[in-house]
């Protein structure tokens, strides 16, 4: 569905991504892993056109995204950013309604509220409707932001470390929710730091290292001892989950 060909992105003189080729298939959850500074967030920003690539093409269903304006992109692709801290006292319903922005022409109508309600239902945030965003926990905020993304009615969902600020329960809940959304037909690309969670939830994984895709494919073929050692510079042992044979990565304790 989403095809990235020969993507090159620079910040000033520094090449952050080069020669990136990546396909996101319709209805899959693709995980992006890689060490800090490997270009994961830049990839998301390039897909949404927030930064202009130096070279390369990004197409969705065969259409070149670089010719689309912000509104059209936002109707097609929604982003759940890394961490969201909102100091302003908007209610949850207001925050989710902001997801309707690319569809609004003047004032919102009952249909927009219907979509907002459905998005909140899917993310189990309906009960938070009238609470203020400033009062919620990290996990709740993340579900609200996902609801906002769904209100955009996108075909593709990009998530930038959606679980990095959450405790283990929050992480599992959010990934479970994403998995459910993918099952319901959305296509998702998620940057995930935790290799084990990525292995457990993603259909496929791409390992980004030094601005390039080092490996991509099924979790067990990407998350090998050698790949991880090269990308992250640590030694790990890779075991297999007995029930579903997804890889489990155990870092070796560093001894002084």
């Amino acid at each position: 569905m989403l095809k990235i060909r020969n993507l090159k992105v620079c910040y000033g003189k520094r090449e952050v991504l080069r020669g990136v080729n990546l396909d996101v298939e319709e209805g899959e959850l693709l995980g992006i892993i890689g060490p800090n500074g490997s270009g994961k967030t830049t990839l998301i920003r390039a897909i949404t056109g927030v930064i202009r690539p130096e070279d390369g093409r990004i197409t969705s269903r065969g259409e070149d995204l670089s010719s689309w304006d912000r509104k059209t992109i936002a109707r097609h692709i929604a982003v759940v950013p890394q961490s969201v801290s909102i100091d302003f006292e908007f209610t949850i319903e207001e925050i989710v309604l902001m997801g309707r922005t690319p569809h609004l022409n003047g004032r919102e109508n009952p249909e927009d509220y219907e979509i907002v309600r459905n998005s909140m239902r899917e993310t189990e945030t309906v009960h938070l409707k009238d609470r203020l965003i400033t009062e919620l926990s990290g996990g709740e905020i993340q579900r609200v932001i996902i609801a906002r993304a769904l209100a955009q009615e996108p075909e593709i969902l990009l998530l930038d470390e959606p679980t990095s600020h959450l405790d283990i329960r929050g992480q599992v809940e959010v990934l479970h929710l994403i998995k459910k959304l993918v099952k319901n037909g959305i296509t998702a690309l998620a940057v995930i730091h935790d290799l084990n969670l990525a292995a457990a939830y993603c259909d496929r994984i791409a390992l980004l290292y030094n601005g390039q895709i080092m490996a991509h494919g099924r979790p067990e073929s990407v998350l090998t001892r050698e790949n991880i050692q090269e990308a992250f510079k640590i030694t790990v042992t890779v075991e297999k989950n007995k029930t579903n044979s997804t890889p489990i990565i155990l870092p070796e304790v560093i001894k002084n």
Binding site: R45, T48, V50, R70, K71, T72, I73, A74, R75, A78, V79, P81, V84, I86, F88, F90, I95, M98, G99, T101, P102, Q152
Partner: peptide, 12 residues
């Protein structure tokens, strides 16, 4: 108010 980048992601 949510931030410029988020506003861009929302089509502004």
């Amino acid at each position: 108010l949510l931030g410029e980048e988020q506003a861009q992601y929302l089509g502004i």
